[in-house]
Design a protein around this nucleic acid. Sequence first.
DNA 1: CGGGATCCTAAGCGATACTG
DNA 2: CAGTATCGCTTAGGATCCCG
Lengths: 134, 134
Amino acid sequence: MPQPNLQPIEIDYAAEGAANCKALGQILDRVGDKWTIMVVGVLSGGTMRFNALQRAIPGVSHRMLAMTLRGLERDGLVKRTSFATIPPRVDYELTERGHSLHVPLLTLAAWARSQQSGIAASRQQYDVQAEQAD
Amino acid sequence: MPQPNLQPIEIDYAAEGAANCKALGQILDRVGDKWTIMVVGVLSGGTMRFNALQRAIPGVSHRMLAMTLRGLERDGLVKRTSFATIPPRVDYELTERGHSLHVPLLTLAAWARSQQSGIAASRQQYDVQAEQAD
DNA sequence: CGGGATCCTAAGCGATACTG
DNA sequence: CAGTATCGCTTAGGATCCCG
């Protein structure tokens, strides 16, 4: 970086916070889409076939399930095993890395549970105040 | 549900996993958008004004920063304080709840750091193999 | 300086139809 | 049963302009 000293305090805070969040942003792009965490969550219960997954995840389309699984496989979070039988059969299971993701996800889920009622209340309050302001 | 008994074992696994992930899905819809966690991360360093935030978060548009802050304020994660001076000045800071979110986020960030090189490697390997397959 | 409103493009995603 | 390709709708989100 070619800038030696440039308001160290505010910039440092920002840079630090941004650095912390940058990696986070990357993985939220990965995990924060519509279906990925559902797939990880369901697969944490054990190996499943494609159609079983689709049945287990309400609302997911054939297409999106396939794309989500490709992405997870590409990142080494899910292992795909296909059997050349008729009819064909494909098993999906979490890899070691996939299981390791499940842990921080549960931490987040715990936070969600503990805060969801408070958040709902906050929203309601915010909305009525916004409504009064017109 | 009008179907009484329908392969209890597989369904139970799925239902459990889905239940775990449902709350998670809610908060990822909240937190998993393009800018929210960046804002939370930067604000974890302390109170900031609107334009300081925009400078601290590379690439965020005026519009999206405003929307993100509105959302966070609505959920009680960020507190907004405006001063009726000229020029006007608005401070943003994390609330108690906002800070509490920062904790599980750091857990996720730690996972991201520990896995990002492995994921990158996995992607590269997957891509070359896909390339060979055409 | 903070924050709307409007416009417009690109990306996400479901539906459908087709292959092995 | 598993997977891909095409189509078309819907949305997210950047650019821009205006107002207090």
